Computed example of a mutant assay.
Amino acid sequence: MSPLTEVEGRRLALSNLDKVLHPATGTTKGELLHYYATTAAAMLPHLRDRPVSFLRYPDGPEGQQFFTKNPPPGTPAWVTTAPVPRSEDPRARQPVIQDLPSLVWAANLVVEFHTHQWRMETPAVADRLVFDLDPGPPATVVQCCAVALRLRERLAADGLEAYAKTSGAKGLHLLVPIVPTPSEQVSAYARRLAVEAEAEAPAQVVHRMAKALRPGKVFVDHSQNAAAKTTAAPYTLRARTLPTVSAPVTWDEVAECRDPEALVFLMDDIAPRLERYGELLAPLNEAGRGGRLP
């Protein structure tokens, strides 16, 4: 029988706490749950009111992985859910992680957290713009940093402020708070900037997804601004060999990056970083912070 624990008045059955999920570091499921519980104050504002998709990897990153938007069987009634806009099934819903009990419940399923750029009360009206900078080998995150700095300047020219985080995989994410804007308009603007970036540096940047175009270049993925798409949330663990995190980074760290390993952050790195830098992405959730697209 799974042990029961109480989290802010909610009873949860937590399973297989000694199960090793990342053999390279010996990281157990119990340690994963502890990470999310102790990082919740920083992470929850980025999840709250945003329907989530889960990439589940219950047997670790080397086991089966599957992506789901629907609430899994056995989802507690107290977990908030929201309708999926433009779904063929009018009953389709997605979970929304509103509080610590919901976060621990979801983490017990062993998931990556992926969120939309809009909130459940305004489906398909985004309050964030996102670029996913993905390096095509032999390019690395070092080249992503150079592209990120160019995009930051370009966004600033339009009165928009960008914030950076690692993807937790190979690249970087840029997040931009914006005045609520229909996702179609955000997508068009993001695509325009990605096309501009390729035109200015065609040897380093590509805006199209075709893998044949990407070796040695940074793919500026603008597609995650579409209303139906989701992006790995800040502070989520990733289903990688090591327990890497999608971690906020400073612009100084981006500008000074010369080593691909310099921006790899593991689960145990996050508490010290929060102590040193605070919550670098907190401005994304501040009322009135968003810029207006031109």
Rank of each mutant, 00 (worst) to 15 (best):
M1F: 12
S2T: 06
R10G: 06
L17H: 06
L21C: 06
L21G: 07
A24I: 15
A24Y: 06
A24V: 10
T27K: 04
G30S: 09
H34K: 15
T38D: 09
T38L: 03
A40L: 12
A40G: 13
D49T: 12
D49H: 14
S53R: 13
D59T: 12
G60M: 08
G63H: 15
Q65A: 11
P71A: 10
P73C: 07
P73L: 09
T75F: 08
T75I: 13
W78M: 14
V79Q: 10
T81P: 14
P90D: 09
F113H: 00
H116R: 14
A124M: 07
R128E: 14
L133G: 15
L133H: 09
G136V: 02
R152P: 04
L155V: 11
D158V: 06
A164K: 02
G168S: 01
A169K: 02
L172T: 04
L174C: 09
L175H: 06
L175C: 00
P177Y: 05
P182Q: 06
A201F: 00
P202W: 02
R208G: 03
M209R: 00
R214E: 01
K217L: 06
K229L: 07
Y235A: 03
L237C: 11
T241W: 05
V249G: 11
D252L: 11
E253W: 09
E253T: 05
E253G: 10
M267Q: 15
A282Y: 01
L293Q: 00
